[in-house]
Structure formats: C-alpha cells, structure tokens
Design a protein around this nucleic acid. Sequence first.
DNA 1: ACACGGCCTTCAGCTTCCTGTCAGAAAGCA
DNA 2: TGCTTTCTGACAGGAAGCTGAAGGCCGTGT
Lengths: 219, 219
Amino acid sequence: MRILLIEDDTVLGAGVRDQIQAEGHSVDWVGRLDEAGEYLASASYDLVLLDLMLPDGRGLPFLREMRKRGDVTPVIILTALDQISDRIEGLNAGADDYMVKPFDLSELSARLAAVARRYAGNPNPLVTIGDLEIDLAFRSVRRNGKLVALTAREWVLFEAFVQHPGQILSKAQLEERLYAFDAEVESNTIEVHISRLRKKLGREKIDTVRGMGYRLGES
Amino acid sequence: MRILLIEDDTVLGAGVRDQIQAEGHSVDWVGRLDEAGEYLASASYDLVLLDLMLPDGRGLPFLREMRKRGDVTPVIILTALDQISDRIEGLNAGADDYMVKPFDLSELSARLAAVARRYAGNPNPLVTIGDLEIDLAFRSVRRNGKLVALTAREWVLFEAFVQHPGQILSKAQLEERLYAFDAEVESNTIEVHISRLRKKLGREKIDTVRGMGYRLGES
DNA sequence: ACACGGCCTTCAGCTTCCTGTCAGAAAGCA
DNA sequence: TGCTTTCTGACAGGAAGCTGAAGGCCGTGT
C-alpha cells in the first residue's frame, strides 16, 4: 500500500515509517499540512496517518477539507489528546480510526493489517484491463489467468497507471515515484522500464503520449 | 467439554473462565503447576489452556513432561507478546495451538470450537496445493500422500504462506512470526529456512519476489 | 554426568537476475 | 528529408538470494 504519514515529531515519525516499510508498504512522510496537501494532490494513497497537532495548523480542519473534496482515502488519526470528545470529533470529521500516542508499533501493525484487509476486499479488488487482472492488494498481475512476474520497479510504475486510469503521467512524475527525492537518474530509465512492462503485459496496455508522458491503454 | 485452565493472572483467568463457561463448558482453574499436575492426574480433560509463566515454574517443561507421560490431551498455550519465540519451542514441546496475550475472547471461542470439532470426530479441513495436502489443525503435510516432516520453524513459515495464499510476505513479516519483537536476527535465517522448505516440499511451492519477499507458488 | 543427535543460526562463496546506461533503430512530426 | 523523441537489445555492475558446511544449543538416552 502507499501510505502518507503526516507527523512532525521526528522520533515517532521515523519509528512509524520504519515499521510501515518493514511491513512492505511504501511511505511518504511529511511534517507540515501544506506539504501534505501537495502530496495528496499529486499522488494517490491507500491510507493517511494524520497527526492532529502540526506546526502549521490543526489536523481536524485539514481532514474535514479532504472529505469535503470528496477524498475517501482511509485516515487514521494519531494524537496525544486522549479525551473522548476529541475522538468523537475526529470520527465525525471523517477519520476511520484513532490511535492515542504513545502507541505500540504492534498496534499500528494491526490497524494497517485491518486497512489492508479492507483494501483487499474492496469495491474493486480486481481491476481488469483487457486480458489483464490486477490485484492491487496482493501486488499481482495475471495475463490470461497466468501470473506475470513483475519486478519491484515495474510494479511501482504499473500501479501508478492503474491507480490513475486515463490520466497522462509524465516521466518526471513517474521518476518521482521510483526514486527518493535526492537520487537522480541521468538517462532514459523510464523508457526502458516502460518497454519492459509492455513486453510482459502486451504492447497496447500503455500508450505513449508524445512530449507529455504515458497513459493506460484503452483496450 | 472439560477444560483445565492453568493461569496465575487473576483478571485474565477470571475472564477466560467466564467466557468458557458461557460457551457451556466446564472449567477447572488453577494458578500453579503443582496443582495442575494433581488435577491432571486425578481427572481427565478434553483441553488444557496453559500459561507459560507461572509462580512455580515455566510451562514448557511441564508440557514436555505431559507428553513424555503419553498424555495427548490438546494443549493451547497462552503467551505474552514478548515471548513469541517461545511459541516455537511450544510447538516443539507438543502444543496444539498458541494464543498471544492479550487476546480477544472471541478468538478464544474460535479455538475452543476448533478443538470441540476435532473432539467430536469431525474431519479437519484439508488444504491442497499441487501435490501437497496440508492439515492445519494437525500440523501435518503430505506430499503425494507421504508424510513430510517439518521442523517447528519450517512449519511456522509454511503455515504463514498457506494462511495468506497469493500474498507476498516480506522477510520482516516472516521474522516477526518467528521471533520476539526485540529479538534481532542479523542474518539470512529466513532464506535458509525457505531453502530447506523448498527442498522438502518442492522448489516451485514458494516463489521469490525479489526485493519484496516470498509468496506461495501457483502450481 | 556425558555423549549423541536434531535443529537452528551464522558465514562464505556462488548464482541469479535486477536495473541503469548506452547506442543504434524506429517512429513521429514539420 | 531532417530533426526530435521514443523504443529496445545488449551489457556490466552489483545487489539480492541460495545453499553447503561448520558450530552451538538443547533435550534425550545411556
């Protein structure tokens, strides 16, 4: 799963990030609400972990704003406020769950598993594209029923297309998904990976939009 | 069923006792191993719930002693989270199941029901994978009808795959199943165990997903 | 108490295969 | 046609994974 962690405490944040990654999910970690907004706008996440007290504002209005925009991404609130009224307010604002700091990392695992389970048994657990069957939760792709082995990078790319059907994704956007911010690549890596994906999944699955990027095929 | 509960924590013990009675079983509850020995000698039980940390000794030697005497009464171990590694030893010592404290009482109900089913002589569900036949309740695997001997750790690993078919399990996740939280393994233990499992069950039963983990094979 | 044996971890060397790079071919565009 | 952009086969370096062997721990039998 792709998870957005919004937390300004560096110690807790690092711990949570490590735990999540250890479970095999990918994490973007930001410490401010304005950053969080940008990330939410530019990528799609399967889960948001939201601290309520941040340097540039409170989390609840941010959450309400999200919901008003129609964003239904599951949100788990992380907070030191342990008062029941806060909890109710949080749930009212559209949170899916609530964890009081300090919490056990194993507790976090349990919640993640719960979300993953829901994610796994969701409206469209299987996305079908032509002869492909994609299971986002299990990270598996079948072509004509046969499991296709995608490498880590290939999966990250393909997942991006599946999560944004119809949308043109630029090479820059795709690179961002593949690499950490600092690390940079000086070559046509994306093109090469796209080429490999096409070979495995079928040429027509990914369209080239000259000068702009790539897009999921129509089929 | 007649159940012997060996547990020194009065709060947990009372909760468990009440739950069991609510399900219509009868319970004897003792807080020490010497008492437990007496009860076992003087009455016969259909199930034993055994805490591992007791005031007058540890539960595992007690369990081993039972098995050595030829006592085959089903035993479910109750253990704290930081003793997960004990559960491996528990399996070795002849436990039938384990529950990590704190556990849900509904989870307890499920295990009771499973034991009751076996007690009633009903068939256990068999999972079939290629030429393998797995009996999760009895912890046995047959390959082409021939019993395959798995060691405790091998079983814990393999069970994880069987319980999550199709899902990629990371080494971190698998390690978590094998070891206590803090316990750290600085080496390729998982790889070694996977290697041995493959040798016993067939190479194709477990797929490697490079950089992500392992997954049950398709076959 | 001692030795034996099974099981587990560690280590080291080996194999596999992922991935970024490049170069030439192909395709789009004017 | 000539220029740009994209595609794709090949390759090398290195990371990730595999596996045989050695050593240690623990429970068991003598």
